[in-house]
Computed example of a mutant assay.
Amino acid sequence: MFHNILTILVITSCGGRAFAGLLDLFNVNTDYNAAFVMDSIFDVMSNDTKYLLSGDSTNPIETDVTFLCGNRNAPNLTQTVINDAGLSSKLVTSKPIVFITHGWLDNGNKIWIRSMAADYLKFVDTNVCIVNWSNLCLYGYALAANHTFRVGAYLSSFITYLNRQGIPLNKVTLVGHSLGAHISGHAGRYLGGKIAAIYGLDPAGPLFTLPFDVGPAKRLDSSDAQYVQMIITSRCTTGVCVGDGHENFYPTGGFVPQPNCVLPLFGNSETFEPLTCSHAHACTLFRMALNPQNVFSGKKCSSYSLYLLELCLFNKSTKMGIYTSRVGGDFYLITSMFEPYT
């Protein structure tokens, strides 16, 4: 019965009453209930959670978390380890480096993450590493969320190793989706907030934000890097309600459904379901924005309603993504239904 109710809520989330009902489900009083909602929603979408792991991993962390790295001269990303004897064939230590981290139930071989890595190499002369923590994210949501601390700690160890090889911390950028955003935040915190930038792509909300606020020490926030940007596309559902970055972008208010997810069968959507489509759309928008020709200009404003009323017309604007002018604040913008969504 619970699954049937969730199915109705999720599929009809573009309606006001259904969206409010979904928010009510996430505004629960305990961490357990939030994790249960996440697991149940996934069960609705997949009809099979039998493969989800239970208990905890006994593998060494270097088995459960791997780094696939390369650059323009070595675009076929290959596994790279701490004290890697072949490091010089995989990374150019005189250039910056970007780490891309996936979220819950995902992995480093998915098309979206490979496409993002390829676009980074196309538009930015940098090293790129994919953080693959799939062995630790194929658990129930609560366990996977708890694993983010271990993954973040190991990522910080790998970055420390690369720092000793000549890559300064101020040349390190982290990009993370969902739980991967918080992994990036953990790593940045372990490194004293000294890395250059973190881009949180719809950071996961359940277990990290209200109504049970875990505090900035346990989630991505502006103290984790010299510059933190958040792109929020499933506000108060699978994503956080409010951004904690130096700059926070809310495409179409940050709400579900994003424009290309209203009619997923007819648009260029990430999935056929509005909630997960909207959650994933932050990754697509960020990847589109890597191309300097795709300009997503956000207007600084205190709320989406004021933005829609055009009461922020004379406020500052900046570009969403890596080409931001870093003026700071909350920014709203409207995106379109079709690629490149500008």
Rank of each mutant, 00 (worst) to 15 (best):
N76E: 12
N76L: 11
L77E: 01
Q79E: 15
T80Q: 05
T80F: 02
V81F: 11
I82A: 05
I82L: 08
N83C: 11
D84S: 06
D84W: 04
A85K: 12
G86T: 14
G86I: 05
G86W: 10
L87P: 13
L87N: 06
S88Q: 12
S88K: 11
S88W: 10
S88G: 05
S89M: 10
S89E: 14
K90E: 02
K90G: 03
L91M: 02
V92G: 07
T93P: 09
T93W: 09
T93G: 07
S94V: 08
S94P: 10
K95A: 09
P96G: 02
P96V: 03
I97M: 05
I97T: 03
I97A: 04
F99Y: 14
F99W: 08
I100P: 01
T101D: 09
G103R: 00
W104V: 01
L105G: 00
D106K: 04
N107L: 06
N107G: 12
G108L: 01
G108K: 00
N109I: 13
K110M: 14
K110E: 15
I111F: 14
W112H: 10
I113K: 00
I113G: 02
R114C: 12
S115V: 10
S115C: 13
S115G: 11
M116W: 09
M116C: 13
M116I: 12
A117W: 05
A117M: 07
A117R: 02
A118F: 12
A118W: 13
D119C: 08
Y120S: 04
L121I: 10
K122G: 05
K122S: 13
V124P: 00
V124M: 15
T126L: 08
I130H: 07
I130W: 11
I130A: 08
N132V: 06
W133D: 12
W133N: 04
W133S: 10
N135E: 13
N135K: 11
N135T: 11
L136M: 06
L136D: 01
Y139C: 01
G140K: 13
G140D: 04
A145R: 01
N146V: 00
N146P: 04
N146E: 15
H147S: 06
H147T: 02
T148Q: 05
T148D: 10
T148W: 04
T148P: 04
F149N: 09
F149A: 11
R150W: 07
R150N: 14
V151M: 03
V151D: 11
G152D: 11
G152K: 00
G152P: 10
G152R: 00
A153M: 07
A153F: 09
S157V: 08
F158W: 07
F158T: 04
F158K: 03
F158E: 01
I159M: 09
I159C: 05
L162E: 00
L162S: 03
R164D: 13
R164S: 15
R164V: 07
R164W: 09
Q165R: 14
Q165P: 02
Q165K: 14
Q165V: 04
Q165N: 08
G166H: 07
I167T: 03
I167H: 03
I167M: 05
P168G: 06
L169M: 12
K171I: 02
K171D: 08
K171Q: 15
V172G: 01
V172L: 02
T173A: 09
L174A: 06
L174V: 07
V175E: 01
V175L: 09
V175M: 06
G176A: 05
G176Y: 02
